[in-house]
Design a protein around this nucleic acid. Structure first.
Lengths: 211, 211
DNA sequence: ACATAATTGGAATGTCAATTCCAATTTGGG
DNA sequence: CCCAAATTGGAATTGACATTCCAATTATGT
């Protein structure tokens, strides 16, 4: 029992410099594969080949496949949020919201509308089958929704948005539009549905503008 | 080569009375299992047990697993649309829209927010990996979106909805809100996100009301 | 009733995945 | 430099799964 710790929790074993690198390489390869083929559609041998590691290494660092999946969820969340970070922290104007959503739409077009949302796809696949994955996904969506709500709240505090506006509910609605829009776009291979979905919600938010 | 026809298309072989029943039983069992565990998470032996049939029967009627998945997509589409049919054909008022979306929210609550949308979940899983499934899913979403658009168009024709309203885009936005809202609700185990998402879009549609 | 086609059972096949094991090798701290 | 711990390789194990086969059995049209 060299126990790679309980269940993807903090690791007691110290990681060597190369160890950290290997660990990262595995996560990145797994994330990429799982984005395209889902968690269930990605095998350990697939990941071994893509990351150039042996089976031992994967089990050494993650315990089992579920542990790796959890690590991938966290990694995707961190990565996606970091990617959007400049914009994500200043979502306190209608223009900023539109620009931010637009950039995601362009990104979707750039990949030919293949693949949906890195987090949403995993959520749909794992929410009902893996309790600990669901917990991580709750946190992932919260961390995503927060900057939206926070931006809207700032607008409201500044008096730009009506007091009647429920900023939390509007943030949730926008996140839902993004997710649903991405899904429709993925199926239809066109970002139009995504753009229409987010546009409708932002138009609605706009209706709460004061003056 | 007794060929159960090409790819889930029309079957040349005549079905006997019992044959039709068996075929239906298989589809229903598969649909139920795949709703809870996904297509990839549902094995042929699982379906055999649930439907009380032998492997031969499944392969006899569907050729292979992909053929069965296609049949399940069509079955879920037909079933879901039929379930909503009374409401679905009269979505030509704000109240009707709200009531329709509400009933779906109540349905979600009733099952404890486990499982998302029967079609959306399969869409997320299969859109990128199975070209023929994607084709069926396009049709499924179109058949779903159509009654919404058609209801909005009737409102517009009656002069209740502004000429400025893009009924097609609004219908897409509502469908996206439903999908994204369902996903968030499934992860959070609360229908709140779903209700907030659809409410925002319907509020937006309401803003196009004339007078 | 007969022949043809549909239906069914159940075992067999081959592949591949998740995981475990153990032995080697490397690394970092004292 | 030395030892315990970390890291790695690669084979072995075990089980499940999709699919095929063939032999029975049953239904249907004529």
């Amino acid at each position: 029992m060299s126990a790679p710790v309980k269940a993807g929790e903090s690791k007691s074993q110290r990681l060597t410099k190369g160890g950290r690198k290997t660990r990262e390489r595995i996560i990145e390869a797994a994330a990429e594969l799982m984005f395209h083929h889902g968690a269930g559609g990605t095998s350990i041998p697939d990941i071994q080949a893509a990351a150039g590691v042996s089976a031992s290494q994967i089990y050494h660092y993650f315990g089992d496949k579920q542990g790796l999946v959890l690590a991938v969820i966290d990694h995707q969340t961190d990565t996606r949020l970091a990617q959007q970070r400049p914009l994500l922290d200043s979502l306190d104007s209608i223009e900023a919201l539109r620009e931010w959503c637009d950039s995601a739409g362009n990104r979707q077009d750039a990949r030919g509308c293949e693949g949906g949302c890195e987090i949403g796809s995993l959520a749909s696949e794992l929410a009902d089958s893996d309790q600990s994955a669901r917990t991580s996904l709750i946190s992932a969506f919260d961390r995503w929704e927060d900057p939206i709500r926070s931006g809207l709240a700032r607008m409201q505090a500044r008096g730009e948005l009506s007091e009647r506006a429920d900023t939390a509910a509007l943030a949730t609605a926008l996140l839902a539009a993004i997710q649903g829009g991405m899904l429709l776009s993925q199926v239809r291979r066109s970002s139009t549905a995504y753009r229409q979905a987010v546009s409708a919600v932002i138009d609605h938010i706009e209706s709460y503008l004061v003056r």
